[in-house]
Amino acid sequence: MRFQHLAQRLFNTPLAIRPEKAEVIMAALSDRLGVSHLFRVNGDAVAVSPQAFFDSDDSDGPRRSRERDAGYDVVAGVAVIHIEGTLVHKLGALRPWSGMTGYDGIRTAFLGALRDPEVRAIVLLIDSPGGEVAGCFDLVDTIHGARGDKPIWSILSEGAYSAAYALASAADRVIAPRTGGAGSIGVIWMHVDWSTALTGAGIKVTFVTYGDRKADGHPEIPLSKEARERFQADIDTMGALFVDTVARNRGLPAAKVRDTQAATFLAADAERLGLVDAVMAPDAAFLALLDQLG
């Protein structure tokens, strides 16, 4: 099967992503997917015009020097970290690339901004349906643990769902536009059963294993009751971690977060539930942060 590495990141692994987005991703596997290099942070911030706050550039154009790229733009003393598209554990790029953002790049940019003496505050500019569970909650803890060092705001443009909301919730404040949204606080696991298709093609797959559960979840065989129960237990554990993490980050009772049942909410309802702090346009949110900084 082509793109085995990508398939391993989509199938039979926990995802914190909106289900409809997961379906789109799996329907759109293409030759464009690949990796780029993770550049070293050298402490040099790139000064750009305020327009860069709204623009995401994942090309190698002249606007920034890739050799000196810290993974964030500095606008009026505020580091802006773009978080867009599907979130993956290890992308190997500091910026959003090919419709994805890596937790590795976000971490490097965030830690660099914390150390940067020119940076007075950090904005996570988020528009993402979520992505992989792997790597998400460790990064969330890193962001949450930095509260108090510098102001950290999550500004949604437009939405932050599932894993992306986990990241957003780690900031001091979460701001969403009126047409944006937040939520999907849950975990999904997808199993693809190819057994009937293989049989129809005259292909028989035989597994020789050591350990009764070694072949659990493989797409070449139907998902057994025992395997489903085991995977459900794992998903329940990760879902509970998600709920407890958001409850901690937002100062909400875990039961209130759990009662959302992984639903998504438009900005006004998200504010009512305590998932976001205010509803305003991204530019207005950025100006509000500048006013607070003085």
Rank of each mutant, 00 (worst) to 15 (best):
K256C: 00
L91M: 10
V174K: 07
K90T: 13
Q8I: 03
L15P: 10
Y72E: 06
R173V: 09
G61N: 11
G148P: 00
L273E: 01
A227P: 08
A262I: 10
V75Q: 10
E132L: 06
G202V: 14
V187Y: 09
D149G: 00
D216Y: 15
K90Q: 14
R147P: 08
E271V: 01
V46A: 15
A168D: 05
G112K: 07
G217C: 10
D73W: 14
L273C: 01
A121S: 10
G92W: 03
L266E: 06
I106Q: 04
A109C: 05
R32G: 15
K256P: 00
V123T: 05
V48H: 03
K214C: 10
H5D: 14
A27Y: 05
A233I: 06
L10D: 11
D31Q: 11
G186S: 10
N12T: 13
A215N: 13
R120C: 08
A201Q: 14
T264Y: 08
L94D: 05
R64W: 14
D172L: 00
S162W: 06
P282A: 04
I188N: 13
L266I: 01
G159N: 06
N42Q: 15
F207I: 10
F110W: 03
A263D: 12
R147V: 00
A166P: 06
A27H: 09
T264A: 11
V123H: 06
A240L: 11
E220L: 11
D116M: 09
V41S: 13
I175R: 02
A268G: 01
A240Q: 13
F286K: 04
A262K: 08
E84Q: 04
M280H: 03
D60S: 15
D283L: 04
E67L: 15
G145R: 00
P62M: 11
K225M: 11
M190F: 12
A166M: 11
D104H: 08
H218Q: 13
E271C: 01
D172Y: 01
D283M: 05
A288F: 01
T245H: 03
R230C: 09
P129H: 08
R250F: 02
A79Q: 06
P219R: 07
R9I: 07
A285C: 03
Q261C: 07
Y103F: 14
A170Y: 01
A267V: 01
A22Y: 07
A70M: 12
V174F: 07
A215S: 15
A113L: 10
A182I: 09
S157E: 04
Q232G: 12
E118W: 09
A267N: 02
E158R: 01
A134W: 01
D149N: 06
V119D: 08
A201F: 10
H37C: 14
L10T: 12
Q261Y: 08
D31F: 12
I83D: 04
K21Y: 08
S98R: 14
G180T: 04
C136E: 05
V24L: 10
V205D: 11
R63C: 08
V123W: 06
G251F: 00
A262M: 10
F11G: 10
L125V: 03
A255L: 03
V48T: 05
K204F: 09
G131Y: 05
D55S: 04
M280R: 07
D57R: 07
L156E: 02
R66E: 14
L252H: 00
V208K: 11
